[in-house]
């Protein structure tokens, strides 16, 4: 949990809004009745930072986190009733950051105890995204056992991938929380997040700096990078290209001031407030309907009274039909028995 939430917080801190983030959490850890600290998920045993916080939007949770939904999110092939917050609304100028974590192995990642997604599935999904022009560049990060095998099958352009351990290697957790009785975060993600703490919105840190931070001794596994599909040099690719939502803004010279009364928000609050104060004076004397009759009860009470007045009637047409049917059946049997 803390893995994905740590990445979520980092990405939010660097400027990407919730509408551009799709967070899929298969377990409800924060509000689980066995969590000693309700509403909190901590990335460290010291419990100094709460990743769940006050402001979080989980788009897919619980049983909704399935391989099918994940691939539908990537490829965009969804039923029309799926709301916008659950869709990846990217186009050919979007940089997409995909982070996956969980239990995995050689070219697979386990979903929900009964499903797996394979490296081929993700590779094909990315290819579909490329064909449908749903990304400009993808940064794929995965923290599982034998994670590097998951990106070995990609074949679409502009993908930069990194994993926490290579084939036949496990990825290890960082530390345990003795009160909660679980290990709180994994090593690879922990060190990546620690690196990210030094990155802010205006930082010029590059991907190469991130990859240079990889230390097999600290990770207890060999994290890998795959950059052959990526057409830019990594030492010129900024971290904020993927992690940050830095937007270009131009400051224009002020023009004539015009006030529009419709849908004032935020700064226009002052105007609307003054009008509503005027209005309230005229309407405060309006009579509020004081209807004593319990609107909701009338139908239920009438059913009760109907039942009390007359006993429930049996279905007489049905009875008639069955008698006719049985009678005809017996007539048929009798007629056949009379024959030769």
């Amino acid at each position: 949990m803390a893995n994905a939430l740590g990445m979520y917080r980092t990405v939010k801190r660097l400027g990407i809004p919730d509408s551009n983030i799709i967070l899929m959490l298969a377990d409800d850890a924060a509000c689980n009745s066995r969590n000693k600290f309700p509403g909190c998920v901590y990335p460290a045993a010291a419990r100094d930072l709460d990743l769940y916080g006050d402001n979080i939007e989980v788009d897919y949770r619980g049983y909704e986190v399935t391989v099918e939904n994940f691939i539908r999110v990537l490829t965009g092939r969804m039923d029309s009733s799926v709301p916008r917050s659950k869709r990846l609304l990217s186009d050919d100028r979007s940089n997409v950051f995909v982070y996956m974590t969980g239990h995995g192995g050689n070219e697979f990642l386990k979903f929900q105890d009964n499903e797996e997604i394979s490296a081929f599935d993700i590779a094909d999904a990315f290819e579909q995204m490329w064909q449908k022009k749903r990304y400009n560049e993808i940064f794929f990060m995965i923290d599982t056992c034998q994670a590097n095998t998951m990106y070995s099958k990609f074949y679409s352009p502009n993908i930069l991938a990194t994993g926490s351990s290579k084939l036949d290697e496990n990825s290890y957790s960082y530390e345990n929380d003795m009160d909660l009785g679980i290990s709180v975060i994994d090593r690879f993600t922990h060190y990546v997040l620690r690196f990210m703490e030094s990155v802010n919105k205006t930082s010029q840190a590059t991907m190469q700096d991130l990859f240079d931070m990889y230390d097999p001794d600290k990770f207890a596994s060999h994290a890998g990078v795959r950059s052959d599909l990526f057409n830019r040099p990594i030492d010129q690719t900024l971290i904020t290209d993927f992690f940050g939502g830095v937007s270009q803004a131009e400051v224009l010279a002020p023009e004539e001031e015009f006030y529009y009364s419709s849908t004032p928000e935020g700064g226009h609050q002052q105007e609307s407030e003054s009008f509503t104060h005027v209005d309230s004076a005229t309407t405060s004397g309006a009579v509020k309907s004081n209807n004593d009759e319990i609107h909701g009860y009338s139908d239920l009470l009438s059913v009760v009274q109907d039942l009390q007045r007359e006993p429930p009637k049996r279905d007489t047409t049905g009875l008639f039909r069955t008698w006719v049917s049985s009678g005809l059946m017996f007539a048929l049997v009798a007629w056949v028995s009379m024959r030769k």
């Binding site: 939007e57 989980v58 788009d59 949770r61 619980g62 049983y63 909704e64 799926v82 709301p83 916008r84 917050s85 659950k86 609107h295 909701g296 009860y297 139908d299 239920l300 059913v303």
Partner: peptide, 25 residues
Amino acid sequence: SGQFCASLGSLDDQRTTSPELTFRP
């Protein structure tokens, strides 16, 4: 379900009824 981050999308035919007598407007 998208608005409130809940899995309300799974309230499909297998969970939907129309108990008009009890749930009055």
